[in-house]
Computed example of a mutant assay.
Amino acid sequence: MQIQINTNNHVEGHERMETYFREVITNSLKRFEDKVTRIEVHVGDENSHKSGDADKKCTIEARIAGMQPVAATNHANTIEKAIDGALDKIKKLLDTTFDKMKAH
């Protein structure tokens, strides 16, 4: 499973941050690694230099072999919380998707 992390101009994409999030994502989605070919993560700060509630955004797109990609988005007041929330949502979405495949 390949993981690609993208940030907008308002988020500092330090190598340390990227390494940490890559490890968190890999561990969280490990059970799907045989079915998901690629994970794309988009992280951004929607208010740039201004502070505000839920101005950090994370979208995680999972590319499933032989299917259309699925995506989940979460907003939070920190990048860490935005990624954690998006990970929770994408795990539920992948569980639902694969459960439906088993039912057919």
Rank of each mutant, 00 (worst) to 15 (best):
M1R: 06
M1N: 03
M1V: 04
M1Q: 05
Q2H: 13
Q4C: 10
N6D: 07
N6I: 07
N6A: 09
T7Y: 11
V11M: 04
G13N: 08
H14V: 12
E15R: 05
E15S: 07
E15G: 09
E15M: 07
E15L: 07
R16P: 08
M17C: 08
M17Y: 14
E18F: 13
E18T: 13
E18V: 11
T19P: 08
T19R: 13
F21I: 06
F21H: 14
R22S: 10
E23G: 07
E23K: 13
I25V: 10
I25W: 04
I25K: 06
T26V: 11
T26N: 14
N27T: 14
L29Y: 02
L29F: 02
K30D: 13
K30H: 15
R31D: 12
E33T: 14
E33M: 12
K35A: 10
K35E: 15
K35V: 09
V36N: 04
I39L: 02
I39H: 02
H42A: 00
H42S: 00
H42N: 00
D45M: 00
D45E: 01
D45A: 01
E46L: 09
E46R: 04
N47A: 10
S48A: 15
H49R: 15
K50H: 04
S51D: 15
S51P: 12
S51F: 15
S51G: 15
G52W: 04
D53T: 14
D53I: 13
A54L: 14
D55L: 07
D55R: 12
K56N: 03
K57G: 00
K57F: 02
K57W: 00
K57H: 01
C58P: 03
T59W: 01
T59D: 01
T59S: 01
I60T: 06
I60E: 04
A62W: 02
A62I: 03
R63L: 09
R63K: 12
I64Q: 05
I64C: 04
I64N: 03
A65Q: 15
A65F: 14
G66A: 02
M67D: 13
Q68K: 15
Q68S: 14
Q68N: 15
P69H: 04
V70I: 09
A72N: 06
A72Q: 08
N74Y: 10
H75W: 11
A76G: 03
N77P: 07
N77V: 10
N77S: 13
T78G: 03
T78F: 06
I79R: 05
I79Q: 08
I79F: 06
A82S: 04
I83Y: 01
I83L: 03
I83M: 04
D84P: 02
D84G: 06
A86T: 00
A86Q: 01
A86Y: 00
L87N: 05
I90C: 08
I90W: 08
K91M: 03
K91G: 00
K92H: 11
K92M: 14
L93I: 10
D95I: 11
D95A: 11
T96R: 11
T97I: 09
T97R: 11
F98R: 05
F98W: 04
D99Q: 13
D99G: 10
D99A: 13
K100T: 07
K102A: 08
K102Y: 07
K102M: 06
H104V: 08
H104I: 11
